[in-house]
Design a protein around this nucleic acid. Sequence first.
DNA 1: ATGCAACTTCAAGCCAACTTGAGGTCAAGG
DNA 2: CCTTGACCTCAAGTTGGCTTGAAGTTGCAT
Lengths: 150, 150
Amino acid sequence: MKLLDIGEVAARTGVSPSTLRYYEEIGLIASVSRHGLRRQFSTEAVLQLKLIGMGKSAGFSLDEIAEMFGRDGVPNLPRLTLHQKADDLDQQIRELKSLRDTLRHVADCPAPSHLECPTFRRLVTIAGRRGVGRGRQSAPIVPRAATPRR
Amino acid sequence: MKLLDIGEVAARTGVSPSTLRYYEEIGLIASVSRHGLRRQFSTEAVLQLKLIGMGKSAGFSLDEIAEMFGRDGVPNLPRLTLHQKADDLDQQIRELKSLRDTLRHVADCPAPSHLECPTFRRLVTIAGRRGVGRGRQSAPIVPRAATPRR
DNA sequence: ATGCAACTTCAAGCCAACTTGAGGTCAAGG
DNA sequence: CCTTGACCTCAAGTTGGCTTGAAGTTGCAT
């Protein structure tokens, strides 16, 4: 099986080497061996990292992601929990759509103040039609990492 | 116009008073006046906070949100930029759907290791079919705030 | 008039998720 | 053989987004 060293994984995934080391340290991913000092990753790691990226983008913490997909890539959560997470995602997708539509509307609507525009108000309020006093809503904020902007 | 004091806004939005003060401090929202020492918010603030919540959930930083909707609620970004953000959201929605489907699949698929399941691999890889080496991908991570869990 | 819950300020603290820096190892190419 | 650059470890620093604590004020119901 082909092995990748950390730079190669970084290049393929956009995740920096230091982050990869950090992920390994917290048990989110694992390297399969060492070549001298150097970590060797299997190509599976690339897939795993894609999954991790999706999880982050959905607002899950690294701990939650580790729970969902196991340090080894095998999920250890009960079905019910997984389906619940999926339901959460559905709700979040609704919110995102609403925000997207709001942004598009704002870009095009010539109203002086959007807070007065009925279309705007409707867009903003629909997403709330569920989960008003509910448990989990928000997604996390990542330092916008994939862009290696320095 | 009806005025709300901070506790009332907190009750209606699920955003804690300390967070509201913080948001005001960084210029994300504004109170319209004081009643004695106490901040008074207009009911618009509730709407604004809904918007802010959506923005956070989409992974925007508070700074970005402030840019998008202005400290005063009026967006000051050029159309093009807004449409770009909307496009980003579309991409993110695709990722979220893919993650949702992956979770559901994982919940139901009896394969021993999912990394070997072709369905799984397909689900994970499709979302990547755009933006492989691209600029912005990920969404931020917020401390799971809306749930006042203590 | 008094008590008290809900507010106030300000500084400090906290957590997740990384990044940075110093100082060191090592393997492969010239 | 020697350089070079990509890797290594470990500790400390950074950033965003809040929360907490101490110490004080105040509107309002009793």
